[in-house]
Amino acid sequence: MKKNLIIIIILITCVNILAQTSSLEISLGTEFLQLSDFKDFLNSSLLDIKEAGIEAKILEEFPNFPVFSIYWIQGIKDREYQLITGLGHYSTGSRIYYEDYSGFYRNDILINSLSFEMGIRLPILVMRNFLINFDLTAVYQSYKTEFIYELSTNNYLNHYKKKYYHNSGGLKINFNNQINLKEKIYLFLSVGYDFIYPPTIELQDIGETYFIDPSNNKVDLNMSSLDLMIGIGINFQTQKPESK
């Protein structure tokens, strides 16, 4: 993760040197993730637990947790398009839980994703205080999937925690609507969709063994999602206009 951050920072710095204008967009929103395999896996896990006699419940089933992202948009001289560089973070998870007087049982899955985007932004509609852009970016995502199992009673304790790291990539299309508030500040609302190639969770510690569901199918981490974001943008004049 640290290595990825360093690469990203270097790229931002270099592009920034070339840029004529820059703007920073900070957005908060939500993603409608598919995660279909994981949801199936969660339900089948609950059935297994109930068969063992534990009347557990699914308390969390991969909810749409807030997405946080930052975009750095740079305009190049004599070019209509702008360069987009962005970072995003997304987190979700699940929980199966049971507790009585004798102890508790929990089965958590936590998914953390850090994405890096680079692409171009084309203006589609330009009005005085209103602007609609079309973004096309390449997306690189790094995932951390964490499985936590814990059974704790008065006379018994079993705690299991395992993390898996995976990388994947894809394309993202996005429509960005801007409304200028002041000279350098604008609000924007964007709607987009991430096409992410779903990685299969490989159990690295056991070699080429994959995480499978009770039906003996490989469990894919399908992170393709519909994004809905709202944010604020700040324009920076990085290059003084030439004097006539």
Binding site: L59, S91, T92, G93, Y98, I111
Partner: peptide, 9 residues
């Protein structure tokens, strides 16, 4: 903003 399940049953 990292997801941390806290609910209990």
């Amino acid at each position: 903003l990292t997801f941390k399940p806290e609910d209990k049953f």
